[in-house]
Every structure is written in structure tokens, then in C-alpha cells.
Amino acid sequence: MSETIKVDIWSDVQCPWCYIGKRKFEAGVAAFGDEVEVEYHSFELAPDTPVDFAGSPIDYLSERKGIPVPQVLEMLERVTGIAESVGLHYDYDSVHQTNTIKAHELLHYAKAHGLQLQMKESLLKAYFVDGGHVGRIEDLADLAAAIGLDRADVVRSLTENEYLAAVKADVAQATEYGIQGVPFFVIDGKYGISGAQDPDTFAQALRQVRGERAATLTPEETTA
């Protein structure tokens, strides 16, 4: 019997492909059939964005990144359609473009309390589906409390920047790995998968790792 396969995922809360990729990855794991340990890591797509950015993602991409508005609209329409295909109902008219550093700190806090996966799903849903704000401490604390975390302690942690160093360490690790975009999946510490790939790609990679592990087992281990 082999150990559970670990998958490290670099992702940002305001990355539309990350939520889509999450769904496709989950479908891949379901097809794979075995348990998988997942840990999310921080990646900041727009660290220069103010928490209370006065504009939409369309404004951000056109004004800050210089992408023509028609092209932005085309991109968002495409990604919204693909999100629908995996059961996610993106509402870009309600999205609050913001700085996600505190959301990443909260994900580390949630990890320390055994609720990172629930927190990740909650943050992505809040941002893309529910029109929630994922940059302000008070809003984040509400989301944290809704999944069972101690609201007051979350406010304390985020105010004190308790996990800021952990976020920066994740970002630094991404740089060292050469990660330039997200989602990015690292399977078993050695195989990288970039982007919102189809479920089969994830399932195939997991099967490959499982097969490689089985091939290295001693006869005693295979009968244990």
C-alpha cells in the first residue's frame, strides 16, 4: 500500500482559470479514484491593486494592463462560458477587483486550522459568483466564520499579518519553480501541470505517479 499522493496547487483567488481548474482537477481526482492530499499555495496576480480599487476587472485590465476594452470583454465572455461548462456561474458585473494578499493570509490561517480547502472554495465562490469582497479584513472574517473559523481570531491574525511571511514564501517558491501563471499543479513534488487542463490530464498524471510508486516497491511492500 502506497502513501497518499500530494498535490501542491499555486493559485490566486481572483484568477478565473483557477476556479475552473479546481473543478477540472477535482473531476480528475474523482476519475483517478484514490485519495489525494491537496495543499494550496499563494500566487498574487495583481499585488499592486488597492484593496478598495474603484473599478471592475474590465477597468483593471484595460486601464492598468493596457488591454483594449473589446478584447477584455471577449476574454471575460469566453472564460465565463467555460466556467458555465463546469457548473460555475461567474457574475462579472458583481465582481470586486481587489488586492488578495489578506485572502492568501486567510488561506494559510485556515490551513493551520485544518480548513484550507473549505476556505479556498468559499473565497473563489465569494469573488466570482456571489459578488463578495475578498480584500477587506471584516469581509474575509465573515467568510471565515461561515466555515467554522473563529471570527475574532481571524481578525486578529489578519491585522497582525500573522501569515504574511508564509504567503511571501509561497510566492518565492513559485518564482524558484519558474511558475509564471496559475493555476499550477505540482504532483508528488516533481510533475508540473500548468493551467486549467482537462480532468483526464490530471487523472493520467496521478495514475502515472501511482504506477511509478508501485514499480519501486519491494516485494515485501507490495504484499504488506
Binding site: 483557477c18 495583481a46 487542463q197
Partner: peptide, 18 residues
């Protein structure tokens, strides 16, 4: 990191407006 060959290079990803 060893990149898997089976990846679809056109799969969507986010790089911050790049």
C-alpha cells in the same frame, strides 16, 4: 519540475494581465 508531455498548451491560465 518535470512538465508532463500530455498537457494541452492552450488550456486557460492567469498571469496577471500579461
Amino acid at each position: 519540475i518535470i512538465q508532463l508531455l500530455e498537457q494541452d498548451d492552450t488550456a486557460g491560465g492567469c498571469c496577471g494581465g500579461g
